[in-house]
Design a binder for these strands. Sequence first.
DNA 1: ATGGCCAGACCTTCTGGA
Length: 254
Amino acid sequence: MKIATWNVNSLKVRLPHLLQWLDANPVDVLCIQETKLTDDKFPAAEINAAGYQVVFSGQKTYNGVAILSRQPLTDVVRNNPHYADEQQRLLAATSGGIRVICAYVPNGQAVGSDKYAYKLDWLAALRTWVEEEMARHPAFAILGDYNIAPQDRDVHDPQEWAGQIHCSAPERAALGALSGLGLADAFRLFEQPDKQYSWWDYRQLAFRRNRGLRIDHILLSRTLAARCSACTIDREPRKWEQPSDHAPVVATLD
DNA sequence: ATGGCCAGACCTTCTGGA
């Protein structure tokens, strides 16, 4: 089976891309972020018609997450029970025996800002919840936009980004604390070409120049990491007209 | 020159993203 994550940056604008991508890439589970839609506006019928069950948790203008699945979704949980948050960034469900969390980690804006403090608090609380979920579900995956580049090799220009948002030591430590629960970055289970990114700024022809960051990740429990035979970033939809600034990441589980 | 693009809100200009 295949599981994937994609920050679509407005599902209203990107629904045609989502359907086009699913048609070419009929993954079993897809986590999407930044839907930017209230639940009454969520295009469930169009997604159902494409052969997917879907659960979603949205709000106006910002954030919003959804899980699409070919198999039924059960035991749905919205938001982190350990962290009161009006922002809709987390959704959990079980599909095909796998416990999945879809995560849209706060951006953080700038190191030292209020939003940065929120990002770190949010990540600390996420760890507590993930630890619980993993204890209950050995087959566990958390997929999403982490807004953190784990290492300098995940950054097009590590000197330019050194210490900056997405690359600061506390952010990387918070991601490391999640990994410390026994989660593996699926992408790094395999030999990969250099300069593989999942996000590119809309400005300055950043995509054409491959000036990007790898900030979208699939983290797998040991049980699932043992089943994982591939993990790739699909740059194709970033080339389409009016694209999301993020690319999908796909993991194959045997 | 610290900008540049994009999406969405209530416009002709802002916030947030990363």
